[in-house]
């Protein structure tokens, strides 16, 4: 009787182990599919950019950047990002602070609107500005009279970039701020802190890593945006061409090597973004873990 029972237990255990552990062939198959997929769709295209860019040698690679049109495209891209990123940083902080910490009518509408640039096709985002500011647009005649150029000029490119990168910072911050609640802010207020002191010393430090992360993503998109910018740019070489637009023009003119050389800039940007992102995540984890530093620091850091 006892032997029978133990046999049953053995069978049951054996059976359970088998049902938890998948067979070897299945594991190998699944891993192979995953690795194959990642290589085919991510690694190979990434490598091909550098291979194509360097096809004619290092000299040809660097000569692509000496071209004045390329230089001007890089400058314009940097300018657009330099305006769009700080603008969306301020906006994202303000919007997420309002949404996460306060109740007001229209809050859910604002939350939805923030996502609009993600939901709408970039081409539409560009067209909207053409319809508003273009020669046949709503305010076009008035702008023409006052000799202000927005469409097919730098302001249009900046506007389109700001619009498209609108959600990045806010979307990183809102969930975090909502999860943190507002007790810390209220505590600061009861202790006599002003609104600004509360924001600077309590709210901001609590979200700094998420903010940083949002800014990096925002920057990557600002520099890489194609669709919306393409519509408002007019593709005037040396004037309204950003780096992604310039890559397209070069490619269409069969300057494949030069196109890939310029494209490699954007690729490097993507890689830097990824490295920074990992660094932030690692730093953040470290700041939580290594917080056992001793007492005496606190006033030195003030």
């Amino acid at each position: 009787m006892a032997g029978h029972a133990s046999t049953l237990t053995y069978v049951a255990q054996h059976h359970r182990r088998r049902s938890i552990e998948d067979p070897l062939w299945l594991k190998v198959l699944l891993i192979a599919i995953a690795v194959g997929f990642v290589s085919l769709f991510l690694v190979v295209p990434l490598l091909s950019v550098f291979v194509e860019a360097l096809r004619k040698g290092v000299g040809a690679y660097f000569s692509a950047f000496v071209d004045p049109d390329t230089k001007s495209a890089v400058k314009l891209t940097l300018l657009a990002a330099a305006i769009a990123v700080p603008a969306n940083l301020v906006f994202g902080l303000a919007a997420s602070w309002a949404i996460a910490k306060f109740e007001f009518p229209g809050k859910s509408i604002l939350t939805t609107l923030i996502d609009l640039p993600f939901a709408v096709s970039p081409v539409i985002s560009g067209l909207v500005y053409v319809l508003l500011f273009g020669a046949q647009g709503w305010w076009g005649p008035w702008l023409m009279d006052h000799d202000i150029r927005i469409i097919f000029a730098v302001p249009g490119i900046v506007l389109a970039t700001v619009f498209v990168t609108f959600p990045f910072v806010a979307r990183e911050l809102i969930p975090l701020m909502q999860a943190q609640g507002k007790d810390e802010e209220l505590a600061a207020l009861t202790l006599g802190a002003s609104g600004w002191q509360t924001f600077r010393r309590v709210t901001l430090p609590n979200v700094k890593w998420a903010l940083f992360y949002g800014v990096i993503l925002c920057n990557a998109r600002a520099m890489g945006e194609f669709g919306a910018v393409s519509v408002v740019s007019g593709h005037i070489r040396g004037e309204t061409n950003t780096v992604p637009l310039h890559v397209e023009i070069l490619y269409n003119e069969y300057q494949t090597q030069a196109a890939f050389a310029v494209a490699s800039l954007l690729t490097v940007l993507a890689l830097v973004t990824l490295v920074l992102k990992s660094l932030i995540e690692w730093k953040h984890a470290k700041s939580v873990a290594a917080a056992s530093a001793s007492t005496t620091r606190q006033f030195a850091t003030k």
Partner: peptide
């Protein structure tokens, strides 16, 4: 506060000093 609402990123010392430093 019920869940204390201590300032997460500040040391105990800085937490207690907060009301005076602001």
């Amino acid at each position: 506060f019920q869940h204390y609402a201590l300032f997460k990123h500040m040391t105990v010392f800085e937490n207690i000093a907060f009301g005076l430093t602001v």
